[in-house]
C-alpha cells in the first residue's frame, strides 16, 4: 500500500513535457519606486492621470515592466524594457471595433487552422517611437508613423484538445505568430 502511494505521489509531481511555442509569462506586482524612471516619465508625459498598476514581467523574451490601468474608458497595457524604454502600447477593444475586413481575415484564419475557436480578448498593439506613442495615447488615435497589429487571445480546439493561444495579426488581419498560453488554475472555483 505504501509502495503504491509513493508511486501515486511521485506521478503527481512529474514534470510535464510540453510541445510547441509556449507563452511563458510570470508577472509580479511591484511598487512605483521599483520602476525605472524612464518608464514613469513616459506615463507622466502621456498625460495619463489615472493610477496605473505596475508589474515586472518575466517572459520568453526576458524581463520587462508593464503599466496597466483604465484610461479613456479602455484597458491599457504599456510595456517597457528593463531600462524603462517603451516597447509597445496595447489597448483592449471589442470585436465590433475592428475593421470588418480585418476581423473577417482573423476569423477565417482561425476557422481554417482549427476545429473550433472562440475569441476571448482582442488588443490593438501600437509600436514605434516614444514621441509618436505618447501623442497617440494622449489623443486616443493612432499616429500615422505608428505600426498597428492586433493581439488576440483565443480558445482553440485542435486534435480534440482545448487550449488557449495568443495570436498576433497584422493591421489587415494577416497571421504573424502564435504562442500557447499556460492557463491560471481554476481548481478553487471548480471544487
Amino acid at each position: 500500500m505504501r509502495h503504491i502511494l509513493s508511486i501515486v505521489i511521485l506521478y503527481l509531481f512529474q514534470i510535464n513535457i510540453l510541445q510547441g511555442q509556449i507563452k511563458f509569462e510570470k508577472e509580479k506586482r511591484i511598487k512605483e519606486k521599483d520602476v525605472p524612471e524612464a518608464a514613469l516619465n513616459f506615463i507622466k508625459d502621456s498625460n495619463i492621470d489615472k493610477a496605473m498598476k505596475w508589474y515586472q514581467e518575466i517572459n520568453q523574451s526576458g524581463t520587462s515592466f508593464e503599466a496597466k490601468g483604465i484610461y479613456m474608458h479602455s484597458k491599457h497595457s504599456i510595456e517597457f524594457n528593463k531600462s524603462g524604454h517603451i516597447e509597445d502600447v496595447e489597448i483592449e477593444v471589442e470585436r465590433k471595433q475592428l475593421p470588418i475586413k480585418t476581423l473577417a481575415s482573423i476569423e477565417n484564419y482561425l476557422s481554417r487552422e482549427y476545429e473550433a475557436f472562440k475569441l476571448k480578448k482582442i488588443q490593438k498593439q501600437w509600436t514605434g517611437k516614444a514621441e509618436f506613442l505618447k501623442a497617440s495615447i494622449k489623443s486616443g488615435q493612432k499616429h500615422p508613423d505608428i505600426q498597428l497589429n492586433y493581439e488576440c487571445v483565443a480558445f482553440i480546439k485542435s486534435d480534440g484538445e482545448y487550449r488557449s493561444y495568443e495570436f498576433l495579426f497584422s493591421a489587415n488581419g494577416d497571421y504573424k505568430s502564435a504562442f500557447k498560453i499556460i492557463e491560471d488554475s481554476r481548481t478553487n472555483i471548480e471544487f
Binding site: 510570470k26 508577472e27 509580479k28 506586482r29 498598476k53 496597466k68 483604465i70 484597458k75
Partner: peptide
C-alpha cells in the same frame, strides 16, 4: 484592481 495576479 481588475485582475488577480501572483502575490495578490
Amino acid at each position: 484592481g481588475q485582475e488577480i495576479n501572483t502575490k495578490e
